[in-house]
């Protein structure tokens, strides 16, 4: 008797649940955009009558996967991304009926190489980063051959670099930070060799193989998705370098210092104007079919694209996001207001 009533209760709950209207926005996607997204969500929830959106950190790829599942009300309304949507993801979305997507570029994030304050600040070029971290590097005699990475110490690469063992801690391949680092720093570095750069046109797969594969002999160590952990390990080992997002550098300036890359120190200014080479754009994508169905999406977009949020002195910059230029904010803000959809990449 008791059991039967419990089963009935569960069944009724299930049915009620499946057809219940969604009353709050659900957001998925990049772990890099996550902190920015949740500040906006929270302020929006406190200052409007709408419920605070649910923000999940699934990673950029995982976010698109959920987002593109369809236009059903149970699917996410917004997905965050630390890179632009890929053609394959766009096609996947279209195939599932998610045809109207609004793209919003919100700002930039810098990826930094940093070491403990106890050690000297390091100055590197992207070429040196590539030589230190790639699995295969061009032969030392200058011929166009690839050999297993022979460099054990930084000073082996260049005399000006410190005479310590190469030890770099970084995120695993599932992380967006790693993707961006590989694309911006490593690819930038290997393009410094003209014959590898030429490969990009002739044999793209081979080019990626050469530039993207990190060495696995211990000089580069995967330290997990948790950037705080990398900071802690750096503080304990002055000889190690770490790779993480700019916001973590901002919050831990008492423990770690950034390395100069191509002569540029990562700061708000150098990332915003593009002179710091390892920075990436941050986006979010909105399912237009849900605007007006799920309450408050338009208001959330308005909050996000308000000057007090993404402006030069907005609260997102306090959280470490690098703002867009004023003209860009204006054009994108207008596009968002009109909910202009993304037609092609």
């Amino acid at each position: 008797m008791k059991r039967a009533s419990i089963l009935a209760l569960t069944a009724s709950l299930l049915c009620a649940n499946a057809f219940a209207a969604k009353d709050s926005i659900s957001i998925v996607g990049s772990s890099t955009v996550f902190p920015f997204s949740k500040v906006v969500a929270e302020r929006y929830g406190k200052s409007t009558q709408f419920k605070t959106p649910t923000v999940e950190s699934t990673g950029t790829g995982g976010g698109f996967k959920e987002f593109c599942k369809g236009t059903d009300i149970a699917t996410p309304d917004i997905t965050n991304a630390s890179r632009r949507i890929k053609q394959s993801e766009f096609d996947q979305c279209k195939a599932n009926g998610v045809t109207d997507i609004v793209e919003v570029l919100i700002g930039y994030d810098g990826i930094v190489l940093a070491n403990s304050l106890e050690a000297k600040q390091v100055k590197l070029s992207r070429k040196q980063i590539f030589l230190a971290l790639a699995e295969k590097v061009p032969a030392t005699d200058g011929s166009e051959k690839l050999i297993d990475n022979p460099y054990q110490k930084w000073s082996d690469i260049d005399k000006s670099l410190p005479d310590v063992k190469i030890r770099v801690l970084g995120p695993p391949p599932s992380s967006g930070t790693r993707d961006a680092f590989v694309e911006l720093a490593m690819e930038g570095g290997c393009s410094a060799f003209p014959w590898i750069k030429a490969m990009k046109k002739s044999d793209k797969d081979r080019f990626k193989e050469v530039c993207h594969i990190m060495r696995e002999d211990g000089a580069f160590q995967e330290a997990g998705e948790n950037d705080n952990l990398i900071v802690q390990k750096l503080a304990a080992d002055p000889n190690a370098l770490g790779i993480f997002g700019f916001s973590f550098l901002d919050q831990n300036s008492d423990k770690v210092q950034p390395s100069l890359i191509d002569g540029e120190e990562p700061t708000f200014e150098t990332i915003a104007d593009g002179s710091y080479p390892v920075s990436r754009p941050l986006y979010f994508y909105v399912k237009k079919a849900h605007v007006g169905v799920v309450p408050g999406i338009a208001e959330y977009l308005a909050e996000f694209t308000h000057e007090r949020a993404w402006g030069d002195e907005g609260y997102l910059t306090d959280k470490g996001m690098i703002p867009l230029s004023e003209e860009k904010r204006e054009t994108i803000g207008a596009r968002v207001k009109n909910l202009e959809i993304l037609t092609k990449l």
Partner: peptide, 9 residues
């Protein structure tokens, strides 16, 4: 199942 999320309420 999406319970690892930022939920303010």
């Amino acid at each position: 199942i999406g319970m690892v999320a930022f939920i303010a309420e």
